[in-house]
């Protein structure tokens, strides 16, 4: 078989790139409660929760995110971005960024808000929570 070497190279390259990509670019996901327990993570993390309160809807955005299970667990987020269309209180939200120990707040560089694309009537009528469905909020630099 004349193609063993190039095929092996392709397969090894694939595995190598996937491992490198995940190690270098993978971002740990967690719930709000996980973020607040113990030491704060040093690197970039993605935190899922509910948009509890919007303090400033002008850029920079300032808002509070609460845990989905335990609403008493909350943290403040600062994000130097413009407000996405689907950024509304009580919506599912995920914020990606890092914890700033000095300011004691989470500084997000990306917000993922619920995209209400396929939620059902019960959700629209407030009878059930819409699924955790994410859409990357528009993020102009």
């Amino acid at each position: 078989m004349k193609l063993v070497a190039p095929i092996a190279l392709i397969v090894l390259g694939l595995i190598g790139l996937i491992v490198m990509g995940i190690v270098q670019g993978g971002i740990p996901e967690m719930q709000v409660a996980d973020l607040l327990v113990g030491e704060k993570p040093e690197g970039v993390v993605k935190v899922h929760g509910l948009l509890e309160k919007i303090h400033s809807s002008e850029r920079p955005l300032r808002f509070t995110v609460s845990d989905k299970e335990d609403p008493t667990q909350t943290f403040d987020v600062y994000c130097d971005r413009t407000r996405p269309d689907t950024f509304q209180e009580t919506y599912d939200v995920a914020v990606q960024g890092r914890w700033n120990a000095e300011s004691g707040r989470f500084e997000a560089d990306q917000i993922f808000t619920k995209c209400p694309s396929k939620y059902e009537a019960e959700d629209k009528l407030g009878l059930g929570r819409a699924p955790v469905v994410e859409a990357p909020a528009k993020m102009p630099k």
Partner: peptide
């Protein structure tokens, strides 16, 4: 026991050479 989110740059890093 810990979810790892994969973002656009990772896809680009892996897929572009191919």
């Amino acid at each position: 026991g810990k979810g790892i989110s994969i973002q656009v740059p990772v896809y680009n890093l892996v897929c572009t050479p191919f």
